[in-house]
Design a protein around this nucleic acid. Structure first.
Length: 894
RNA sequence: GGGGUAUUAGCUCAGUUGGUUUAGAGCGCUUGCUUGACAGGCAAGAGGUCACUGGUUCGAAUCCAGUAUAUCCCACCA
């Protein structure tokens, strides 16, 4: 077989992905004979393209799912995409604008048609990209949060929560565009980065019944007529005495209370704040805290209305009114100052007019009660967060949970199923279909003649998270009529085979920034609708940053294209590269060097395969490699136990590193070097079979991390039947290991290193065979069991024991055993003395530190006996070594 | 402003109930190798007052308090 010295992933990856697909290895279905293992993907935005964050995230999920599959579990990874209402709508609007079409010129249906065309065209891209990474998702189950069934589920949940009393209509500040006369989302409000220059005016307010006044600072004097309080900080000595008194609104002399609120900063403005709950989000909050009246003095078109009480201003545009009021205040002697001031002013992306904060009726979910269980289960570790530090964050958020505003002023998404039939605030009904709505409306209005055309459905759609919070339930079709009890508002157990089998899922792998937006809410929905958690473990990945710690983003242009990376380094290289540096929950500083390291690792395994494939087998010979074989077996089991431990704690990077070290150092550098036949000689059957067996173990261990190359080598190593693939080969189980042989081997390896060291320092080529190695110690058998390894790897012809020191030899010490390598040329005595002195110094220092501990009575009395025993052993070893070193020094100096 | 997390080798990080740690790994660096699997490789080596100051303890990189610095989340200035 002609095998290149370099592994070429481009020839391999697509081939095996197709092979796995053709054999349906990714597909999972309920199987009573197998344990389930399931993961639902955090659905990427349907318009998104794969970025480095996805790469990390999905690599981790794929590793978990592949390992579970090999462990014999029914492994199900459900892929999907999110309709991402804001992001997608923004993209579609932008695309239309480029074609000269304005959203405002389109009907809702026309706009949605464009949006669907866009989705159909670009929506599949990101999933195709995941395949290049090797993601072994069950593609037959691909979900989309705006699919029919999913859409219905979301609406069903809205109606149910409304019936249960969790959903209400409430006032909320929205960003109002007075020109377009519409609310705009936060994302559509543009703030000038440097702020805009505005003026801060100081205005006098008379205190009721006193000969005193306060001065407040405001940017928006035109809202003065909507003031319903003056607030001061309760700790402010200057104004403390005023709290509880009343002030008078200029011109109209309406009485307003003076209240104390921590929100007011002592050192900003004048320390007194006018409170206008209808026209400022913070003032609105203060208003709620203090039960203040709300006086809305501004119309939808930005003009002042009759609530401002002064006829002069009614109908006047807000900025004109501002000028007029300033003039009038000045004339009345109430304006005591004005100063320039830089502030953040929001402007509408669409019309560039200054956004007017406006109170409007929006839909909310009451969070306190519905989230109680979700709070508790995380605190009780029934759902475990990795890393656990996020438990604090989660707790803090849950304790201060706010009601969730779920309406969005957009078209792309699930339309709110509320239908209005009148002009009063309460003239609406909530229902899954227009037909049901009509029936309900006829009842509620008492008008049986009400027709379908008389109903107006709410134009807004639901927040994207109000659909994705149902993801783990909806992907298994949980809200289908067949499985859902409408009366109770619960999914029925025992009817939906998928859900009964795969739910709760095993792990969720996602980014910490959506812990509240998504993770917490899925937990809430899971308990509300299924009575159980949606997942058992949550693994929170870090953010992928560049070497300067900047977040990787398209705008900065500091992110490599993942597909280019895969082309250049191979999917396996990229996967391992990403994982090399990704401690859970910590940010990952992406470094192309790590991906290179991943690629080199692929090549290393490839060449190990080339070595073994190159051996010629001779059944007639026997070579005793039993020690090497026993050692590797033990070392493998030890490493596997470590790896399992890492996996159990979601320490993926550590698991990878243990595997990497096992393969490179132990399997390639030590085992294969020990086992390989001398050049030109054949290999014996036993060594060959064992080596192939070990190689297979190693490939199985590496497969979840590096799926493609392991599958390729699996098939080159041996002839196999069609379905004999590493992707479904059993995951190795950890057997016992012999600690003694591992320790002994380490001593032998130390001997080899020391000999190589001497070669290096004396310029003796590794090719040059050294005639003899003498060994002076009490128990030479310890080393002799690895005699053939030492001979082969250190290139010495013979190993002999001795009772005495050997003259004219380079010496070294392992533990307290002495070794001598006779040298042809003269030994540089000075150098040897220096070397021994240095070692002696270290050994003595070490002994001193141990002495200090052992001579401390309190240590000996208080420390656990095992610890004291260990210290005694350390002392004895150190003393033995010092003795040998001193003898050496003596014989060198005589 | 509120809360979280971190600070260990030039860089990125381990160090898992305080004791085999006068501290480990990878990368980088230095030196030497056409070593018949691999130069995408092999071998050897240098490199650290564990941010600082106190405290608890027989014993602290590890626990506690404070200081400094960095970083993230939330709220944001009338």
């Amino acid at each position: 077989m002609d095998l290149s010295t370099k592994y070429d992933p481009t020839k391999v990856e697509d081939k095996w992905y197709q092979y796995w697909m053709d054999h349906k290895f990714f597909h999972a279905k309920p199987n009573p004979d197998k344990e389930p293992y399931s993961i639902v993907i955090p659905p990427p935005n349907v318009t998104g393209v794969l970025h480095m964050g996805h790469m990390l995230n999905n690599t981790i999920q794929d590793i978990l799912i592949r390992k579970a599959r090999m462990e014999g579990k029914e492994a199900c990874w459900v892929p999907g995409t999110d309709h991402a209402s804001i992001a997608t709508e923004a993209k579609v609007v932008k695309m239309l604008r480029e074609q000269g079409i304005k959203k405002s010129d389109l009907s809702r249906d026309e706009f949605l048609k464009h949006a669907w065309e866009w989705t159909d065209k670009y929506g599949g891209i990101i999933l195709e990209q995941l395949k290049k990474l090797g993601a072994s998702c069950d593609w037959d189950r691909t979900a989309f949060t705006l699919d029919d069934g999913y859409y219905k589920g979301v609406i069903r949940v809205f109606v149910d929560l409304y019936k249960k009393g969790y959903i209400y209509r409430g006032l909320r500040m929205v960003n109002w565009d007075v020109e377009a006369k519409t609310a705009v989302s936060n994302e559509e409000v543009i703030y000038n980065e440097n702020g805009e220059v505005s003026k801060l005016y100081s205005v006098k307010y008379q205190i009721q019944g006193e000969d005193e006044h306060v001065v407040i600072a405001t940017q928006r004097p035109e809202t003065i007529l909507g003031d319903t309080a003056i607030a001061v900080n309760p700790k402010d000595e200057r104004f403390k005495h005023l709290i509880g008194k009343k002030a008078l609104v200029p011109f109209i002399n309406r009485e307003i209370p003076i209240i104390g609120d921590d929100y007011v900063e002592l050192d900003f403005g004048t320390g007194c704040l006018k409170v206008t709950p209808a026209h400022d989000p913070n003032d609105y909050e203060i208003g709620i805290r203090h039960g203040l009246e709300i006086i809305d003095t501004i119309n939808d078109d930005g003009t002042l209305n009759e609530k401002c009480e002064l006829p002069k201003y009614v109908g006047m545009e807000r900025f004109k009114a501002r000028k007029e009021i300033i003039k009038d205040l000045d004339e009345a002697g109430l304006l005591v100052g004005e100063e320039e001031f830089t502030t953040r002013i929001g402007r509408s992306e669409r019309t560039n007019t200054v956004i007017e904060p406006k109170l409007s009726l929006q839909w909310f979910i009451k969070m306190k009660e519905v989230s109680r269980k979700a709070h508790q289960v995380v605190m009780d570790d029934e759902i475990v967060l990795y890393p656990s530090k996020f438990k604090n964050t989660y707790n803090h958020w849950m304790e201060n949970v706010r009601d969730w505003c779920i309406s969005r002023q957009l078209w792309w998404g699930q339309r709110i199923p509320a239908f209005y039939f009148g002009t009063r605030e309460d003239d609406f009904v909530v229902a899954e279909t227009p037909e049901e709505a009509l029936t309900l409306a006829q009842e509620k209005s008492g008008n049986p003649n009400l027709k379908a055309e008389d109903l107006n459905q709410d134009p807004d759609v639901l927040d994207t998270w109000a659909s994705s919070w149902l993801f783990p339930l909806a992907v298994f079709d949980g809200f289908n009529n067949e499985y859902y009890d409408q009366e109770k508002g619960k999914i029925i157990s025992g009817k939906n085979a998928d859900l009964d089998y795969f739910y709760p899922t095993d792990a969720l792998v996602t980014a910490p920034e959506i812990l509240f937006f998504w993770v917490a809410r899925m937990i809430i929905a899971g308990y509300e609708y299924k009575g159980d958690k949606p997942f058992k473990n949550v693994y929170l990945t870090g953010i992928v940053r560049d070497k300067q710690r900047r977040k990787m983003s398209k705008q900065l242009g500091n992110s490599p294209d993942p597909l280019d990376l895969i082309k250049e380094y191979g999917a396996d290289g990229v996967r391992t590269g990403m994982l090399f540096s990704s401690p859970a929950g910590n940010d990952l500083l992406f470094d192309i060097k790590l991906v290179e390291q991943g690629k080199k690792f692929s090549n290393k395994i490839w060449n190990a395969m080339r070595l073994v494939k190159g051996w010629e087998i001779d059944d007639s010979i026997t070579v005793d490699n039993s020690k090497a074989i026993n050692w590797f077996e033990s070392r493998f089991n030890q490493a596997l136990a470590e790896i399992e431990d890492h996996f159990s704690k979601f320490r993926m990077s550590d698991a990878l590193q243990s595997m990497y070290k096992l393969v490179w150092d132990e399997f390639c550098s030590w085992y294969l070097e020990m086992a390989k036949p001398d050049y030109g000689k054949p290999v014996d059957r036993k060594t060959y079979d064992k080596t192939v067996e070990f190689f297979e173990l190693v490939l199985r261990l590496a497969h979840p991390f590096m799926p493609f190359i392991t599958e390729e080598i699996w098939h080159i190593l041996k002839e196999r039947s069609e379905k004999d693939c590493v992707i479904i080969a059993p995951w190795p189980t950890a057997g016992d290991f012999d600690n003694q042989i591992i320790e002994d081997a380490n001593l032998a390896f130390e001997v080899i290193s020391q000999i190589r060291n001497i070669r290096a320092s004396k310029g003796i080529s590794p090719n040059e065979t050294l005639a003899e190695l003498f060994l002076k110690c009490e128990n030479p058998a310890k080393y002799q069991q690895f005699e053939s390894a030492i001979k082969k790897l250190a290139n010495v012809a013979e190993i002999k024991t001795t009772q005495d020191k050997v003259e004219g030899a380079a010496g070294f010490i392992v533990k307290s055993d002495e070794f001598f390598l006779p040298m042809e040329e003269d030994i540089n005595v000075e150098e040897e003395i220096e070397k021994v002195k240095k070692e002696l110094e270290y050994a003595k220092g070490f002994k001193t530190s141990v002495d200090k501990k052992l001579s401390n009575e309190r240590f000996v009395n208080n420390a656990p006996p095992a610890v004291v025993e260990k210290e005694r052993q350390k002392l004895a070893d150190a003393e033995a070594k010092i003795k040998v070193l001193e003898e050496n020094l003596q014989s060198l100096t005589k």
